[in-house]
């Protein structure tokens, strides 16, 4: 944007990095420390024996918790709270889960294809009782491909800000305001990559449709689950989860 000075972009960068650091939920050092701490065969077996309802409820709670951190990230990002409330909600409703999926690559060990879950690293088989192997595998594949980019924490911060601030989301009321913030974030992201000689990753970033598709698959799976267990969803699933996904 010709109207944004380098100082403005630098301020935005610092603000996004700070907001991210304050809301990243799990510290990278802790995740790295536990990287080879995997569930035993017996523990995996006991997860696999859990009922579908229990496993769904657990995962819904974890997703909701992760999303609350993303909401907090958005709130601390300069410019986000200046958007009208309709647009804040549109962006979070469409983008919060996408950000959670990107953040997940920090908690993913691509060397043994496991993800941090309830204190240890878990392979896709652990989630068998959810009854959505295809979705779980797609999410693991996605985390694997993102891991290969070796994102730094600063890169994740700016990239996830851009996942959230997307002026192409339907139902925005002040599209141009979102567009301006998005343009500035793009400048900030590219500026940082240039500074660190990391522009090469730009061509390797996941296409926007990939994240959208994973979120769509998740909502479809929830729909099927809800048809089987409407009372469980109604009575025990976190209200924020239901508000966002059903």
């Amino acid at each position: 944007s010709p109207n944004s000075s380098l100082t403005e972009i630098e301020h935005l960068t610092q603000n996004v990095l700070k907001s991210y650091r304050e809301t990243c939920q799990l510290r990278l050092e802790d995740l790295q420390l536990l990287r080879w701490e995997t569930f035993t065969k017996e523990e995996v077996g006991s997860y696999q024996k859990k009922s579908m309802e229990e496993m769904w409820e657990r995962c819904a709670c974890h997703i909701t918790e992760a999303i609350q951190y993303v909401v907090e990230f958005a709130k601390r990002m300069s410019g986000f709270m200046d958007l009208c409330q309709n647009d804040q909600i549109v962006l979070l409703k469409a983008g919060a889960m996408e950000v959670v999926l990107v953040r997940m690559c920090r908690a993913f060990n691509s060397e043994n294809r496991t993800v941090f879950f309830e204190g240890k690293y878990a392979s896709p088989e652990l989630f068998k009782s959810l009854g959505c192997n295809e979705l779980i595998n797609s999410i693991f594949d996605f985390a694997h491909s993102l891991s290969s980019l070796h994102f730094s924490e600063n890169e994740i911060a700016l990239f996830t800000a851009l996942v959230l601030i997307n002026s192409n989301r339907p139902w925005l009321q002040e599209k141009s305001k979102v567009e301006r913030l998005q343009n500035n974030l793009e400048l900030a992201f590219k500026h940082m990559l240039r500074k660190n000689h990391r522009e090469g990753i730009l061509a390797k970033l996941p296409p926007k449709g990939k994240l959208r598709n994973l979120c769509y698959q998740h909502m479809e799976k929830l729909r099927s689950f809800r048809q089987m267990y409407p009372i469980i969803v109604h009575a025990v699933f976190p209200p924020l989860y239901k508000e966002l996904f059903s």
């Binding site: 609350q68 909401v71 907090e72 709130k75 709270m81 409330q85 804040q88 909600i89 979070l92 409703k93 209200p239 924020l240 508000e243 966002l244």
Partner: peptide, 16 residues
């Protein structure tokens, strides 16, 4: 607004 009351509340809560 009613449809997204929890998001509304989270966004308005300045203490979080």
């Amino acid at each position: 607004k009613e449809k997204h009351k929890i998001l509304h509340r989270l966004l308005q809560d300045s203490s979080s």
